[in-house]
């Protein structure tokens, strides 16, 4: 009887379960230290890297982004033609291998691959500018409001509300016409001045909870001033949400800039921008499908990739995050 039972039950060898999966739990490491067994000390960045590399989608997206960025940076060398070089013998060609017009040509016979590459360059540059400026403004305002609280918080947040209540599209269009001048830098600044509100709110929220932590009190008791506490103790703890918000803004900036340019209010010719390319392409109708499809695809790919990278970074940067991604 007992034999039968034994064969029915799966005789699993009892394995000690490790909470950290494949990773050696930190308690073990600490014990190893205490017992004098030499263990290679691993830095926090080691863990961040490891966790990020486990996030395959994020790694793939990062590779795509790096590739696109390289193409954008070296546009002049990579692009087979200049973006405004006319080839009047090949007007409105669909994608073809001849003369490396891989993305075809537009109505003026300009190589579309080259135009997309230079458009990518402009769009990426604007997006990075917007993300950087937004993060700088939003983090500064949010962290000051969240750390000091009270009247300071009230003033800054009401100002934030004010910016939020502006009708974005109307302000964007107006500002673009009067200030933007179709210049990528100016358009980027205009976008950043409207986009920082979300980030400021996120950072403020994080700081409001962080400032109550005991380590802040401990830092104060150790003689740290406000600036030191904000920059050295609180910001690193808020880096996760900030980076995630930043990637979202990066993606949004690309889309909004494309939309603006599509409407004709953003970046103006001769600067090629992805949105402008789509706008010009859609007037040609469905016959020249490639004029809309390729820049559109590039926009979608960038936005997706940026979001995935943001996801991966969030998981990797959060020091309490011990979950291992497939």
């Amino acid at each position: 009887m007992t034999d039968v039972l034994r064969t029915q039950e799966d005789p699993k060898p009892v394995e000690p379960e490790r909470p950290g999966g494949e990773e050696l739990p930190d308690a073990d490491q600490a014990l190893a230290h205490e017992s004098g067994i030499a263990v290679k000390p691993r830095s926090q960045w080691y863990y961040v890297r490891t966790r990020f590399l486990r996030h395959r989608l994020a790694v793939a997206s990062l590779l795509v982004l790096v590739g696109l960025a390289l193409v954008a940076i070296f546009a002049k060398r990579v692009a087979p033609y200049d973006f405004d070089q006319l080839d009047l013998f090949n007007i409105a060609q669909p994608p073809t291998r001849t003369d490396t017009h891989w993305f075809g040509t537009d109505l003026l016979g300009r190589d579309y691959l080259s135009r997309v590459i230079f458009g990518l360059r402009t769009s990426l540059w604007v997006a990075l500018l917007v993300a950087g400026l937004t993060t700088a403004i939003g983090t500064t305002i949010g962290s000051i409001a969240g750390y000091y609280g009270g009247t300071v918080d009230n003033l800054l947040m009401r100002f934030t509300d004010l910016v939020l209540t502006l009708p974005t599209l109307a302000v964007l269009l107006t500002a673009s016409v009067f200030v933007g001048n179709g210049d990528p830098f100016r358009v980027g600044v205009i976008l950043a001045l409207l986009f920082w509100t979300g980030l400021a709110r996120i950072v403020r929220g994080v700081f409001l909870s962080l400032r109550e932590k005991e380590f802040v009190e401990a830092a104060k008791a150790a003689g740290a001033g406000d600036a030191r506490i904000i920059v050295r103790h609180l910001l690193p703890n808020a880096i996760g949400p900030i980076i995630v918000a930043m990637t979202l803004i990066l993606a949004a900036a690309i889309l909004v800039e494309a939309a603006l340019s599509f409407l004709g209010f953003g970046i103006q010719p001769p600067n090629p921008a992805l949105g402008k390319l789509i706008a010009d392409g859609q007037t040609q109708g469905l016959d020249s499908w490639w004029l809309v499809t390729f820049p559109g695809l590039v926009i979608v790919v960038i936005a997706l990739a940026v979001n995935f990278v943001g996801d991966g970074l969030r998981d990797a940067l959060d020091p309490t995050q011990r979950r291992i991604r497939a």
């Binding site: 926090q44 932590k213 005991e214 380590f215 009190e217 401990a218 830092a219 104060k220 008791a221 150790a222 003689g223 740290a224 103790h233 690193p236 703890n237 880096i239 020091p319 309490t320």
Partner: peptide
């Protein structure tokens, strides 16, 4: 603070900055 007068806090779990 931290120079002439230093404090030791109750909960060492939360009094050190985790990052």
């Amino acid at each position: 603070r931290g120079g002439d007068i230093a404090m030791i806090f109750q909960d060492p779990m939360t009094s050190l900055n985790p990052v």
